[in-house]
């Protein structure tokens, strides 16, 4: 059962990202990415990480992609991306991709020796533990990320909020 869920979710995720590469409309791309991120949220759930799953669906598939769609709204979409005639770029990209995949496969072979330790998944699902971690061990990163989000809001307003910009 779990395996079936994993196979379906990963197939959806990879297919959505592949569709994003093939499609030429930015609005469609954003919607494909919503699908991919929602499937990825399900995969996080399979990994006994309910908090990451919820954050993924709410923040990524929800907030960030809505932001992308709002940005798409501001651009001229009637002009689709012309079909690329340059094969060089595709060749270079696939060469780089093959190199990277080989490297990651090496890393995968290295970690495949790691035997999955017997652990209780309840321990990973423990939300209280995560909350305590966030406010003890990760207190400074938490506060800094709050500051970072604040700075990002201020920065976005300063950059794009002005009427006379551009």
């Amino acid at each position: 059962m779990t395996l079936a869920v994993f196979v379906v979710l990963s197939a959806v995720c990879v297919a959505a990202v592949a569709a994003m590469i093939l499609s030429r409309n930015p609005a469609d791309n954003a919607l494909f990415l919503v699908v991919a991120f929602a499937a990825l949220g399900g995969l996080f759930g399979l990994l006994d990480s309910p908090f990451a799953a919820v954050a993924q669906v709410l923040v990524y598939a929800g907030a960030i992609m809505v932001l992308f769609l709002f940005a798409v709204m501001m651009f001229d979409l009637r002009r689709l991306e012309p079909r690329s005639r340059k094969r060089v770029r595709l060749g270079l990209a696939s060469a780089l991709a093959a190199l990277l995949l080989a490297e990651l496969a090496l890393a995968g072979i290295r970690i495949s020796g790691l035997a999955g330790p017997a652990w209780r998944s309840a321990e990973a699902r423990d939300m209280a533990r995560l909350g305590r971690l966030l406010f003890t061990d990760y207190l400074y990163p938490l506060e800094i990320s709050a500051l970072l989000l604040m700075a990002a809001i201020a920065g976005a307003l300063a950059l794009a909020g002005r009427k006379d910009a551009g």
Partner: peptide, 22 residues
């Protein structure tokens, strides 16, 4: 794995926060 998964979730939260800001 195990208790480490909670730490990983905390780090994933920070990655998502940085991604949102970015």
């Amino acid at each position: 794995a195990g208790p480490g998964r909670a730490n990983a979730q905390a780090i994933v939260l920070f990655v998502i926060a940085v991604a949102a800001a970015e």
